[in-house]
Design a protein around this nucleic acid. Structure first.
Lengths: 195, 195
DNA sequence: CGCGGGTTTGATGATGCTCAAGCCCGGTGG
DNA sequence: CCACCGGGCTTGAGCATCATCAAACCCGCG
């Protein structure tokens, strides 16, 4: 269970964890299983935990006044799910985090991850690299959102995360791309025809 | 000149810098003045420096195959400008960073900021907070791009960064919002009429 | 077998883009 | 001081893209 997390820290930091450090990590993280359709976080709550996905998948989304859902991001094995703003500030969140499959998570509080950051260099380096990468990939997503047409955004997604399209329902993919399910259906129908 | 940078580090970290630390910072950062329309970075180059804006303003954008510009972000006093991906990886960038006004910058290389991170806790904390905040604000921007109409995105921008609308030309604001200049012009015309 | 959620398909309409022309205003040179 | 650019902003007309609404379809599951 923890092995995936250890190798995550080791890969991201380029350092290996000794036994003492592994024990510390095991003590701070709390394993949790959630079934498909269960929520890790709901609007109005404070995001108390950041969740590392050991197996399974999840989505983070909002619901607007008209009752429409907007998928901000997906997460799969080896990814983290949390609303950073609520997590770090303690303010209530505007997001939902819902499991898309039966999922195993390792949860940690903000305070505990700080302690691990202070005591384990590999963890500090890994979380830092993670923040940087999150920012870089969201920059790319912004760029695609403002620059590309619906069809181009879909092709971009296929290139960047091919598994998402196979793994997640189409209406959520559409929401992630900022288009209607009908439009996505039509794009898929025409894909390849035009070129 | 450096005072703004010192107070930036102090505010973001909650720690104050001693004289020794200030001296270190002054040694690592290279002051640079660029006039309006000059570039800090151009497509194909490696982003060697991250630039802290002391005074002035800049934009980061791409040019697509059709020759169209897409503004990914603006920067003003107290903000940093760089392409994180190229900066950290050493790969050539796909972005341009252009001054929108005569601008004073403080430049630092990736290697030098690492050294400061290691030797000055306040700097380490500040850069970490910066990464986190960048990510949070880009998440918000993604959300607005996929969830809102053109008009709503414009209103959102006015709420979030009121000064941008006054300070930057409208065609760049339009590009930042992912809409055409004509559409923005019409939105502004109708603003307030409908409600 | 029948129900129900997700997907597809069609028809219609709104939103926002494109192209083109005119306008406004600040800067430049005579 | 004025005339003349030129760039950015505005306005209009037509069009492409994409959303909406509604109905049919498909398929897994009780």
């Amino acid at each position: 269970m923890f092995e995936i997390l250890f190798t995550y820290f080791e890969n991201k930091s380029g350092k290996s964890l000794n036994n003492e450090e592994r024990k510390q990590v095991e003590q701070k993280f709390k394993p949790k299983k959630l079934r498909k359709r269960q929520y890790l976080l709901q609007e109005g709550e404070v995001c108390k935990y950041s969740g590392f996905i050991v197996s399974g998948a999840a989505r983070m989304f909002t619901i607007d006044e008209k009752g429409r859902e907007h998928v901000v991001r997906f997460g799969v094995e080896g990814w983290w799910m949390c609303d950073s703003e609520s997590y770090t500030s303690g303010e209530p969140t505007t997001f939902f985090i819902e499991m898309l499959e039966d999922t195993e998570l390792l949860l940690i509080t903000w305070e505990d991850i700080q302690e691990l950051n202070d005591s384990i260099p590999a963890v500090a380096m890994a979380t830092k690299a993670m923040d940087k990468n999150s920012f870089i990939s969201s920059q790319k997503r912004i760029h695609s959102a403002i620059s590309l047409t619906a069809e181009e955004r879909y092709e971009d997604l296929i290139k960047t995360y091919p598994s998402f399209v196979l793994r997640f329902p189409q209406n959520m993919i559409a929401s992630y791309l900022g288009i209607s399910p009908e439009t996505l259906s039509r794009i898929r129908k025409n894909a390849g025809n035009l070129k």
